[in-house]
Design a protein around this nucleic acid. Structure first.
Lengths: 194, 194
DNA sequence: TCTCTTTGTTTAGCATAGCAAACTTATGTT
DNA sequence: AACATAAGTTTGCTATGCTAAACAAAGAGA
């Protein structure tokens, strides 16, 4: 059985991502400041993100070089079309992920927001669109949404299916730590050991 | 309306994550090499991850300092209990995410693997468990799984619900770029502009 | 034993990304 | 004009994490 996780073909995609976590938040901060106050300066961005003016200055100058940030006639910071597109994409991913975690999975708000914030800049457009699609299907129907919410509200670490796990059936075990499934606790002996 | 995405309370959680993407892959490589060949050396890890021996040497010495990697009596690399736990957690998240993306959302295999690889070390245990729980619910029932697969197989960028979006209703728009929903294209004028 | 290869470490340089502090360049007030 | 404050940049430092190259050490064969 192949183990794609150990394949070196794409593990470094992480470094080659379109945008870094930090850059995304600089863009979103500029976007938010202009939306709220009508302008954004280096100092305002630094204050919002709680970084030093020096750090903000350096990061923003890189964003200017990349063509994501410019200055308006009053020398205030401005997102270019491309920069705005990036900001909106990441904001969109954040909302999709946090809504999915909170309203579908029933994850606690703090964890949902923290997880979504970490992953927002990494989720592809394709995956994001399909996640919206799934949520649209699940949440648009009253009884379907209620059923999912009922199922997820009963979540606890511990699974009843001991004889046969319908999820991992045939494939690699999804809970090798055996934390939430009696079946996997028993099956752990079969797992690889190093 | 509050915008948690612009709140500086947790955006830097990204830096303070338990494990980095790179570290996770070093641990998983050692785990995989020992599982496959019974031993792991710096050179083997470097080869598997396609990094220089120097880079592997430096990274692994940091992992030793953190108590995640040790050496066996033959001086081969070894994961400590804590290191193994970390590796298994990340591997587990990878399998959960890639399976969800591919088998539930219907994302293309390449994108599913790439996205999962980028997010594997960032998803919390709570979110991961609940995602397994959701998949267990969706995929355990034949007709339910078939229905979801049918819905997702019809995915395309473009949404029929023009008058009313059941997903974003009342909250912030999840597709502000208006790419896959006629409703949002029309509503875009209402969105913030910077 | 001597030499060559393999293995592993170290060093210098690069990029991101932060802090603190020094410095420059406004702006604004007396 | 002179000074003080505010705003922005630059420098020296930290850390991760990579490359390339130099270097040290260990093993294997003639």
């Amino acid at each position: 059985m192949s183990k794609p996780i150990n394949d070196s073909t794409y593990w470094r995609d992480f470094e080659k991502n379109d945008i870094t976590h930090s850059a995304a938040h600089y863009l979103m901060a500029i976007d938010a400041l202009r939306g709220e106050f009508g302008y954004a300066r280096v100092t305002d961005v630094a204050e919002m993100l709680e970084v030093s003016r020096g750090a903000a200055s350096m990061s923003i100058s890189q964003l200017k070089k990349r063509g994501w940030v410019a200055e308006d006639p009053h020398r205030f910071l401005l997102l270019t079309d491309e920069g705005h597109q990036m900001a909106v994409l990441v904001e969109q991913n954040f909302r999709i992920l946090s809504k999915f975690f909170e309203e579908v999975l029933g994850v606690s708000p703090e964890t949902a927001l923290s997880d979504a914030c970490k992953m927002e800049h990494l989720m592809s457009l394709e995956t994001g669109r399909r996640l919206v699609w799934l949520m649209r299907y699940i949440l648009s129907d009253e009884s379907r949404a209620a059923k999912i919410h009922d199922v997820m509200s009963r979540f606890r670490p511990g699974c009843e299916s001991v004889d046969h796990c319908p999820l991992c059936d045939g494939g690699e075990c999804l809970t090798p730590l055996g934390e939430d499934c009696e079946y996997h606790k028993g099956a752990q002996g079969k797992a690889k050991k190093s």
